[in-house]
Each structure stands twice: as structure tokens, then as C-alpha cells.
């Protein structure tokens, strides 16, 4: 028996919004410790890794490990039927071929349940290697989303250059070029608005705007985003989900010939 309950549906709606651009379907691996999802995007250039800890749920029970393959467009149809402040309960029997989403209104006067067929998806579990990154940047998630959106008007790629002084985002194309520099913030009193850089050595890497823009669909989940970069390895874009877990996106850099 698997049962996971959240006091507001909003969190799962946001999580789904953060992954459904990149993935058509995905397997939710449920165990005693929580729910994990790991999947390559449809074009196999980026990887999404989601972790929701069991202690972040308002109620969580998972008697046996369960892999639930879900069509995310169908899941989105169901989640659209929930109000943000509805209580959400996901339920499945052991070895079941369906999962049930139950939504309860705050006053308990409306209870809806939706049953969705599960899918058998071929999936590989990838080992994500422990990596020390040359640069780690923490910055406001809204600012990162804004920069990706603005720069994608000028080119298909964004160059991210990180030094001790700051981080620079650049794009160029037929219309011209654009550069946005963010300095490390000097005050720490507003943590959510700070730009913090931990640098071992400077890096300059190029990434496809399209994927960065998809990653920023996770912006409503958290105030800050963390970018971890090293030469020739995938960028990690991490959004922490307060009290529940995280979503990490891995994107391989473009290498000049």
C-alpha cells in the first residue's frame, strides 16, 4: 500500500509544471524514504532528477517499493482539477496498475477522486557522480528566469562566465548581442535576493537557451536557484522545494569545434 498526502495540492502542481515541458512520461519511484524521479528529456540532452522526502509529506506510507510510470499530460489533466488549497492524497495498492489522486476541499465538503492508468516504462537508473564544481552560483530564481527569457531573444545559446567578482550571461545573434553581469551581493540581510558565488576556478560555458528556459518553469517552487558548473561536465540547476526536497536539472554544455 502506498499513500502520500500533502495539505495543499499547489506544491505538486508546481512540481508537475516544472517537469512536463521536458518529459512526456516518467516513473515515480516510491520507497520508505520518499519519491524519486530521474529521467532524460525527450531529446536526451538534459536530465531531470526530482526528490521528495517522505518526512516532507503530511502523511506518508509505502509498504513496498513501487515504480509508477505516469503519462505527465494525463497527470496534468487531473492536477488541473484540484484547487491550490485542496488536500491531495495519492494512493496505490501494491502491484497496482492504477494510481488514485484524491482532492479534498478545505471545509471537507467536496471530495473528488481521479484514477489514472499507470504505464510500464523502460527506465535506466543512472548514477549521478559526486562532483566538486569549479563554480557554484546562488541567485534569485526570478532573476535567473528573467535573464534566460531576455537573452533567448538574441540567440539560441547563452554563455555563462563565472569569476570571483560576478557572473556574466551573454548571447549574440543576427539582432545583436546582449550581456548581463551580476555582481556578488555585499550584504547578507536579504538572503532571498542575494547573489553568492563560490569559486575554485573561473569557468566559461555555453548552454542551449531552450533548455534553460524549460528549467525555469521550476521558479515558483523556490526563491533561490543554484547553478553548479565545471568545464566539460553538465551544468546543474537546482531548485530546493522548501521542507520537501529538490529538483535538479543537468544540462550538457555546448562545446566549440
Amino acid at each position: 500500500m502506498f499513500e502520500a498526502r500533502l495539505n495543499t495540492s499547489q506544491v505538486l502542481k508546481k512540481v508537475l509544471d516544472a517537469i512536463k515541458d521536458l518529459l512526456n512520461e516518467a516513473t515515480f519511484d516510491c520507497s520508505d524514504s520518499g519519491i524519486q524521479l530521474q529521467a532524460m528529456d525527450n531529446s536526451h540532452v538534459s536530465l531531470v532528477s526530482l526528490s521528495l522526502r517522505s518526512d516532507g509529506f503530511d502523511k506518508y506510507r509505502c509498504d513496498r517499493n513501487l515504480s509508477m510510470g505516469m503519462n505527465l499530460a494525463n497527470m496534468a489533466k487531473i492536477m488541473k482539477c484540484a484547487n491550490n488549497d485542496d488536500t491531495l492524497t495519492m494512493k496505490a495498492q501494491d502491484n497496482a496498475d492504477t494510481v488514485t489522486f484524491m482532492f479534498e476541499s478545505q471545509n471537507q465538503e467536496k471530495v473528488s477522486d481521479y484514477e489514472m492508468k499507470l504505464m510500464n516504462l523502460d527506465q535506466e537508473h543512472l548514477g549521478i557522480p559526486e562532483t566538486d564544481y569549479a563554480c557554484v552560483v546562488r541567485m534569485p530564481a526570478m532573476e535567473f528566469a528573467r535573464i534566460c527569457r531576455d537573452l533567448s531573444q538574441f540567440g539560441e545559446s547563452v554563455v555563462i562566465s563565472c569569476t570571483k567578482e560576478g557572473v556574466k550571461f551573454s548571447a549574440s545573434g543576427d539582432a545583436g548581442s546582449a550581456n548581463i553581469k551580476l555582481a556578488q551581493t555585499s550584504t547578507v540581510d536579504k538572503e532571498d535576493e542575494s547573489v553568492v558565488i563560490e569559486m575554485q576556478e573561473p569557468v566559461t560555458l555555453t548552454f542551449a537557451c531552450r533548455y534553460l528556459n524549460s528549467f525555469t518553469k521550476a521558479t515558483p517552487l523556490c526563491n533561490q536557484v543554484q547553478l553548479s558548473m565545471s568545464a566539460d561536465v553538465p551544468l546543474v540547476v537546482e531548485y530546493r522545494i522548501p521542507d520537501l526536497g529538490h529538483i535538479r536539472y543537468y544540462l550538457a554544455p555546448k562545446i566549440e569545434d
Partner: peptide, 14 residues
């Protein structure tokens, strides 16, 4: 895309 896929394959070792 091929090169980016190759970097991912190498990094995750699959």
C-alpha cells in the same frame, strides 16, 4: 545535440 548527448552519457556513465 550529438556532442551534448555524449557529454551526458560520459558523465552519468550509462
Amino acid at each position: 545535440n550529438g556532442q551534448q548527448q555524449a557529454i551526458l552519457v560520459y558523465f552519468f556513465g550509462y
